[in-house]
């Protein structure tokens, strides 16, 4: 499953010491005539936590959905771990890859959704073991043991046999994080993971995410939680109108942003 370091398919083909986990080059995405991404380029290094912020409609959610090919792209290219995502090269052109290959690539990329999207007909444990057992063909007993460890890690060991409908929003989101981690991904994508939560349960989810960042997981987080960005991010990326307009360390970002649009946005949100 792409474990060995395949040849980098990047333009120059250079394989640096620390190959980026994510390499997005000039990504363009249109919905009909509306261009939502107008050439977005971003590299994410191993172990890095990148927070993507910006006003609604700026394309940040679309951008991270392109990274695991939940959205097709209309231009540019995206590589994860050196593998071109969603497409293969044929005579210098990009053609959409087969479903099986795309599915295999997605195994390496965990995703956490705004509205959790837990499987309501399965218990917390069943949600977590489903993909390892069915997709990775992990032995069931082994998958259960792993899932129990993950539930323990997100503080929900006692909710093992509970159905999602009986869990609070924050608990559901923590199960969703555990479910994504169960595939042992190289990269975790978070699409506004706390936007649908009650204020009192946001903290417990952010705590789990901070812990994950500290452990060295490579993460891309679309968020409106500036506190989290300041505390856990290695880098903050500001998007507006389908472009990255500014990026930098959290200190730089929250103390002296260069871009006028960033200043306006932060003054409204902070």
């Amino acid at each position: 499953m792409g474990a060995g370091a395949g040849p980098a398919l990047g333009k120059g083909g250079e394989v640096s010491a620390a190959q980026p986990i994510v390499r997005a080059e000039e990504v363009v995405k249109r919905f009909g005539r509306l261009e939502v991404l107008s050439g977005v380029s971003l590299d994410v290094a191993p172990g890095e936590t990148v927070c993507v912020i910006g006003p609604s409609g700026s394309g940040k959610t679309t951008f991270i959905r392109c990274i695991n090919h939940l959205e097709k792209i209309d231009g540019g290219r995206i590589e994860v771990n050196g593998h071109l995502i969603g497409y293969r090269e044929q005579n210098g052109k990009l053609v959409e890859d087969s479903e099986g290959n795309i599915a295999r690539q997605r195994c390496e990329i965990g995703m956490v959704f705004q509205r959790f999207n837990l499987f309501p007909h399965m218990t917390a444990l069943e949600n977590i073991i489903e993909a390892p057992v069915r997709v990775r063909n992990v032995d069931k007993a082994r998958a259960v043991a792993d899932a129990e460890a993950l539930l323990d890690r997100v503080g929900l060991a006692d909710k093992r046999d509970t159905y999602p409908g009986k869990l609070s929003g924050g608990q559901q989101q923590r199960v969703a994080i555990a479910r994504a981690l169960a595939m042992k991904p190289a990269l975790m994508l978070f699409d506004e993971p706390t936007s649908a939560l009650d204020p009192e349960t946001i903290g417990e989810v952010l705590e789990v995410m901070k812990e994950l960042a500290r452990e060295g997981m490579t993460m891309m987080v679309v968020t409106h939680e500036m506190g989290f960005a300041r505390e856990a991010a290695d880098r903050v990326v500001m998007m507006d109108a389908g472009r990255i307009i500014e990026e930098g360390t959290p200190e730089h970002f929250f103390t002296s942003p260069d871009n006028e649009r960033t200043q306006q946005f932060l003054s409204k949100i902070l």
């Binding site: 695991n68 939940l70 479903e99 099986g100 599915a103 295999r104 997605r106 195994c107 990329i109 965990g110 995703m111 959704f113 509205r115 999207n117 837990l118 499987f119 489903e130 993909a131 069915r134 997709v135 990775r136 969703a176 479910r179 994504a180 595939m183």
Partner: peptide
């Protein structure tokens, strides 16, 4: 979102 979650976990469409 259910199918999206399934796909994001590496499940092919049929599964």
């Amino acid at each position: 979102g259910q199918m999206e979650a399934a796909r994001s976990l590496g499940m092919p469409h049929g599964l």
